[in-house]
Write a protein that binds this DNA or RNA. Structure first.
Lengths: 352, 352
DNA sequence: TTGTATGCGTTATCAT
DNA sequence: ATGATAACGCATACAA
């Protein structure tokens, strides 16, 4: 309830002096400094942040716009952002459920005057116009963008590399018929992982067009449902790449229910390395996505000066997505004794 | 870059009229309304939120102060808060890593003028003075508070009930030597769960002081380490209550490494019902904590009018924490065939 | 229906 | 070293 004016009155100085004391200006005598502090303490004075940012044009708040908050991926991003923000004395203003470009835009709009910079994940393809308008207002970093936007820094996951490495791993283990459960079409991560899958098959001597590909939507249940379709295909796939761990989990359940042994009868790999992955039976071979670092580095990009004065200048960072080999391909010693064939490593089939 | 003044100039009206149009005031002619909208659109005008809240004293932002952001518990709380906030047209200002009362206070202080209300989890016992000072500034809801604060609404988890129900369940299954791995002393949840454990033992005819209690800190590794101590105790415990699922997971790993069968040789129960719980081997019997609802209801409390004009008036909500029976006690058909003794139900030992 | 003028709570630019 | 005062960008009571 107390304003700077009240403090000034009690300390019998001007509001300018109060402001100086509170902002540690050196041009204040010890005596008045003491009086002001005493008054501020007595009144339990808390400065009004809105008023401060109106004059200083700084808010010490970083904005975050996400399509969703569900699951480790998003929550770890936020944790990474918040930690990095805290390190530079900032708080984090969040708004989620923004998939469509219009929703992203209006959320960003309502952040005008309340943030010093914005971190946005806008999965839709048509978002680049919205992005451009946002970018005029404040510093902007894109998370996992579909397309690069001129003058806009971005940070993303090496989806293509990860999927490619997964295929390489499976081929090295001797698998020749690798199925894939895809993510929702149009989703950036899903599309990139599919692309990496196809490129991997091609480079390692397999025919991408012949690969059994079944649709999915990143949910556990879609992975469960995909199993029936996969088991129906001939030749029967000897490995399945699920575009994310959730679907891999659903798949594992379905295979167990169907009496199909993993990795004995079929190998399974996922993508994301969620916390559950190592506790599954068998522990899931997957690709690690470090979403904490994704958020942390997004903040770093946001506050780092542009690489050059050129308005189109920006930085684009791609976070590595390393392969995590566990037991669901039989490539390492499984928790329980595995069938001999599963750990057997045949001659790698290298293309060319 | 454009302000309301620019829009007024282009539309050849006063800033008051622009403000009226933008806020849908009815007292504006269609013609000027059209002109103003055209000007605003042409300039791509975005109102400054700080300036708006300075005059209206509303920010459309809800603040959240948490000790940490790690794990499903916190991330689901945030998701619940954000969803509820969005429903009432608010965004969410987050700041974490605030355990000590002083840190909580200074974070709240820097939110002055930027939020319409605050949701705080302040686990420390000495926080009530800080809470009281915060409460003078804005509407406040406490998450899982240690002590009630006069005039301050709160929402918490039924920790005591949950732990009590867990003991009841174990006793009904015939377990007579129930060990506990405690959480970090001083932590509200940990303490309440310990209290429920002891009260349960007492009410069901067991001696709380004779129960093997080993320390832990809610981490997986502390659960792992606790196993050795538990196995050393005589009489050997036939059930273990880990104060949270993370420690239960560590314990399960350690028991597996030691060749101890769960639930054959010893039953294990946890608390929280994290997502992993149902995927463990064996699936973990635990208590469900609905942290999404915790956050969602916190917002509801925040915006709901006080029950009475009395300054001490407030609401206190306790969210139920229902028992989730899986297979780690042998009380339901385990995934793999279980030893007969594990599913055997002896005569319940009722006190009195 | 529209414009003028004041205030919101600060910081910052002048003076003194 | 301190004080008066003008911004900051907007909403609104009041006047016209």
């Amino acid at each position: 309830l107390a304003t700077i004016r009240d403090v000034a009155r009690i300390a019998r100085v001007s509001i300018a002096t109060v402001s100086r004391v509170l902002n540690n200006s050196p041009r204040v005598s010890e005596e008045t400094r003491r009086r002001v502090w005493a008054a501020a303490t007595r009144l339990d004075y808390w400065p009004n942040g809105a008023a401060q940012s109106l004059t200083t044009r700084r808010t010490h708040v970083l904005g975050v716009l996400l399509p969703d908050l569900y699951g480790e991926f998003f929550s770890e991003i936020i944790r990474g952002i918040d930690h990095a923000a805290r390190r530079i004395g900032c708080q984090t203003l969040i708004s989620s459920s923004h998939a469509e470009p219009d929703a992203v835009l209006s959320a960003a709009r309502s952040m005008r005057g309340r943030i010093d910079g914005l971190i946005v994940m806008a999965p839709e393809a048509a978002a680049s116009e919205a992005i451009r308008r946002i970018r005029k207002r404040f510093p902007l970093v894109l998370l996992n963008p579909r397309d690069d936007v001129e003058g806009c820094s971005s940070i993303s996951i090496a989806n293509h590399h990860g999927a490619y490495a997964l295929v390489e791993h499976l081929v090295e283990l001797g698998h020749g018929t690798i199925a894939m459960i895809e993510g929702p079409p149009g989703n950036v991560d899903a599309d990139e992982r599919s692309r990496g899958f196809r490129d991997g098959l091609r480079d390692f001597g397999l025919d991408p067009d012949a690969a059994p590909v079944v649709p999915g939507d990143f949910t556990e249940s879609s992975g469960y449902r995909a199993a029936a379709e996969i088991l129906r295909r001939r030749p029967r796939p000897d490995a399945v790449f699920a575009a994310n761990d959730s679907m891999a989990i659903g798949l594992l359940c379905a295979l167990r229910d169907a009496g199909v042994d993993v990795p004995g009868d079929v190998a399974v790999v996922g993508f994301d390395d969620v916390a559950i992955a190592r506790y599954l039976t068998p522990p899931l071979t997957t690709v690690h996505v470090d979403s904490y670092t994704l958020g942390e580095q997004a903040v770093r990009l946001l506050i780092s000066p542009r690489p050059s004065p050129d308005p189109a200048a920006c930085r684009r960072v791609v976070l590595p997505a390393p392969l995590v080999v566990r037991h669901s391909c039989g490539s390492a010693a499984p928790h329980l004794a595995a069938p001999a064939e599963a750990v057997e490593v045949r001659e790698p089939l290298e293309a060319g």
